[in-house]
Amino acid sequence: MSYDNACKYLAERFPADFTRWLLGIEATRVRVLKTELDLEPIRADSVSFLRVGDRILHLEFETDPYSNPPIPFRMLDYSVRLKRKYRRDVEQFVIFLQESSNEIAFTTEYRDRTTTHRYNVIRLWEEDPAIFLDNPGLLPLAVLARSDSPQALLEQVAERVDRIENSDRRQGVAACTGILAGLRFDRDLIRSILRADFMRESVIYQDILQEGRQEGKKEEALLLVTRQLEWKFGEITPVLLEKIRSLSIQDLENLGVDLLGFSELADLEAWLG
């Protein structure tokens, strides 16, 4: 399931709810910025950028603390790119969806010998569900929040979703609730509590599932290509890995064939260039 795509949908359809939660302000105008940053993208499928007044709100949703490059470095990289492009202050939040004891989920800065960069981290399993229950765009996140009785919380969320009057909005929120609930609950339980017809009929649900399937195919192709390259040339530099990650599925498949004829790393660099 494409959990981060569900979150991206929520952030971009309900930006005022997210700014109210994360920045503590009632924003009258929030502009969703499409992720067209200079240079190749880092991982544009799991991030949302919102322009709120004179600042940029950068949201990154994670189920797994592990990534390449590591999350702290990615946050530094994104911050620099956003400031260069928009000339605005940047507020960054990494929102971890699934409970983890990994130290990255408790890390709030990037640090090396000359640079320190700080960002915000939210671990949903520690959050009070109250604020999520009071905002339609945050309702799906409530199922992952702190609770002594998670099933009762899921039932409460389902009841709140059922109250949403606009049918398109209700279906979208229900679809995202069903997807995110999969991180915590058994599928049969989810179906028994949420109205399955909302999810089945929701165009949003089908779109999110399709995006998830495409991402799965890309990850498989990426893994195959990087393993072939590491077997052939040893460790690949982070710069080259980022260029490879930015390729489309078709380009990854083409690279998988073409690299059989590479004799040195310069051939890969020329191909990517």
Rank of each mutant, 00 (worst) to 15 (best):
R118T: 13
D134A: 14
A175E: 08
Q228N: 15
L139S: 04
L252C: 06
R200L: 11
A181Y: 02
R191Y: 08
E91T: 08
S67Q: 09
T28F: 12
D128P: 15
G182D: 04
A142C: 06
K218N: 06
I208F: 12
W271G: 06
A130C: 02
T116K: 04
R118F: 04
F49S: 07
F185R: 08
F198P: 00
K217C: 04
E36I: 07
R31E: 13
E60V: 05
R88Y: 12
I249C: 07
L268M: 10
L260Q: 10
A44M: 06
K217T: 08
E165P: 11
L223D: 09
Q250T: 09
L39T: 14
I122K: 15
L180G: 09
R169T: 13
E91Y: 14
F49K: 03
L33E: 10
G216I: 14
A196I: 10
R74Q: 07
D38I: 05
I193S: 03
R74M: 06
L272H: 01
E60A: 06
E103C: 12
T28H: 14
L50Y: 05
K217H: 15
R113N: 08
Y205V: 08
E109F: 08
R20S: 03
S46G: 13
L124D: 14
P72M: 15
A158T: 06
A196T: 14
T19Q: 05
Y78K: 14
S167C: 04
I190C: 13
K218M: 04
L76F: 03
L22S: 02
G24D: 08
D197H: 01
D112Y: 07
D197S: 07
A270F: 03
F73R: 14
V257S: 08
L222I: 05
D251P: 00
E155M: 15
L10Q: 04
R160G: 10
Y86L: 10
